[in-house]
Design a protein around this nucleic acid. Structure first.
Lengths: 358, 358
DNA sequence: AGAGAGTGTCCGGAGGACGTC
DNA sequence: GGACGTCCTCCGGACACTCTC
């Protein structure tokens, strides 16, 4: 590709710069690393030589001797999803602020083996710390058996475990969402959960169950989706075919979208006939039809805490074992009180439970 | 972090494995690299030693001598957007299939300087090839002045330039979207473009202008958004306040979403009163209200072509300079023919609003 | 003798410790 | 004591070599 400053085959090395500047390679090293004891004149000569030769320091060699890479590895997974991708953004921001580069390797492959392979990849590349975004049971298990040699933090609301973790309190989020519906007077509240092997999905579901139990209510219908709008739509078709529920807590915003589409097609009005709560608060959900009540997660904070834990680990102090970030309910227009008399509207008439509970 | 297999401070190296297996480090190297001339018995002893010690080969040292990293660098940017993030997924898939790891470094920072810094980061980390997802003018300019030493491909529909590139033919996509509206009989077609410093946004806009010009029509109103649903909403409020247009081509699906929300709030029915076309075909848009007509981009193909170009470059053959991937129109329910008589202004309020489109 | 199995030495590029002027 | 230079080291791989059957 054209105008190479260095027509020779091999890129310039420190020694070349040194020769050009008339100093030793060690002095070049000092200049590059801003160490003291280099005269101003020499520094300038070296810097000029660097520019002239288009020198770039060889990080492999540097890492070899320093044993540090100043980069954090991230095992990225399901990055097409809103949550994971924004977690990564949060981590990148926080790491950058701390002077660390972030090297993220993702794979579409869903298997645990691929994840472990990626972890090994990072470890053999001398990352100084490692974040695993892989809220799946199997992964956590595998990590416990690992001997990483560097701090490693798993993102996710994984309960007590031998693995360091940072996660949004998904269960509480699910609880908040469900509680909100209960407070509005709903009594039959369905849940569409994410894939059952996602820890997040399970935690949100537990929150739903918990809120219902706390209120002395029976769990409503439970369906499983795959986070996609399509799966939410299909769940909605099934759900609305059966006997009515008046409210649904969907595991994320996209499934809520599909669900609401299914509702529209069947002539159910939202929120008059059906209240819907999502999870994530992705930037679009305020513009859904209607704007979606949902649960917001603070990914920036998540990234900060996560990177903080890793830096603590690098510094040697034993970090907190597990951190939970709070989530918060964002009320919009997809939820409304259950009108006292409106129980006749849909086929929810079966639920004559006005006075019975509580 | 408890049960380290190697309580010493320094991780095991090849020599340690060799000692344990009773061979020389060179034999260990042969085993690891699956080279011939190692007896089965020796191989097994070595492999056992590797597992026992938890040995991982030091990639820095390996790179130092092989001068190859078998990884591709990706400069990721604006990864919160649908397009960029899915391009990355496509690249990862293709690279993985070719046996390359992908190391993506993203930053929130929008400045060109940060991008160049990231490129330098990758180059000094000995990536074997480099992809830059940064469809911004300034970046392309800066890359032209670079002396990378490895193949570098920019993602984007950047016209002729000294830089290798792969991109979806955005302009043609914009043309298709607009043409579709023209074919439906629309005559005043607005466009909400993305940020003006995005090459993609400009290309889509050119497509819109081109299609109108080809049909002998005047350009309709032009507004600028930032890809977000919110910006689409605001654009919609402005647009619908003025004299009516009957169709809008929005620069992406999210802006379409916001736009449709604005339309709903003003009592405009879609597609009866207003046709909308988006761009991206993100998985949600089939579940919008109504399902969105949009333009699909093949990100997997994009990734394949991109990685293919880089591999060609690594192999030494001069790659194609610039590749354009075709996009395609996906028709759904947000567009409809302009009723011959319906040009009677924007407020067709009368009509039972039961449009269960589809 | 010759093929197969295994060894010794040096090298890559940068940084640390220490020495010298 | 400031401004350098000299050696040695990090770890894995290429290469040439030796030994054995």
């Amino acid at each position: 590709m054209g105008e190479s400053v260095n027509p020779g085959l091999r890129p310039p090395v420190m020694e070349d710069v040194a020769a050009r500047a008339g100093v030793s390679h060690q002095t070049v090293s000092r200049v590059i690393n801003s160490l003291p004891n280099v005269s101003e004149k020499t520094r300038q000569r070296v810097e000029a030589a660097i520019v002239e030769l288009g020198y770039r320091r060889n990080t492999a060699a540097r890492q070899l001797v320093t044993r540090r890479s100043e980069t954090l590895g991230v095992v990225a997974h399901s990055m097409e999803q809103y949550g994971p991708s924004h977690i990564l953004l949060g981590i990148q921001e926080a790491a950058h602020a701390a002077g660390y580069a972030v090297n993220s390797v993702g794979q579409a492959d869903t298997g645990g083996a691929a994840i472990i392979e990626t972890i090994e990849y990072h470890l053999s590349h001398q990352v100084d710390g490692l974040v695993v975004i892989a809220p799946r049971e199997a992964i956590v298990r595998a990590i416990e058996r690992l001997n990483p040699g560097v701090p490693i933090v798993v993102i996710g609301d994984i309960g007590s475990s031998g693995v360091h973790s940072v996660g949004v309190d998904q269960q509480r989020g699910g609880w908040l969402a469900t509680r909100h519906l209960i407070d509005l007077g709903h009594r039959t509240i369905a849940h569409i959960m994410g894939p059952t092997d996602w820890l997040d999905a399970k935690a949100r579901r537990r929150g739903w169950e918990g809120a219902l139990a706390d209120a002395g209510l029976e769990p409503g219908p439970l369906l499983v989706g795959d986070w996609s709008a399509e799966s939410g739509y299909e769940a909605g078709r099934k759900l609305f075919a059966g006997k009515g529920c008046t409210a649904v807590f969907a595991g994320n915003d996209q499934m809520s979208l599909g669900l609401m589409r299914a509702a529209h097609e069947l002539g159910l009005r939202i929120p008059e006939d059906l209240s819907v709560v999502g999870f994530d608060d992705n930037p679009d959900s305020g513009y859904f039809f209607p704007p979606l009540t949902t649960v917001r997660q603070d990914f920036a904070e998540l990234g900060r805490r996560c990177v903080g834990m890793i830096l603590d680990g690098i510094a040697g102090s034993d970090p907190l074992f597990s951190v939970r970030i709070q989530s918060q309910l964002v009320q919009r227009a997809s939820t409304a009180p259950l009108p006292p008399a409106a129980v006749t509207g849909t086929s929810a008439a079966i639920e004559g439970a006005e006075g019975s509970s509580r």
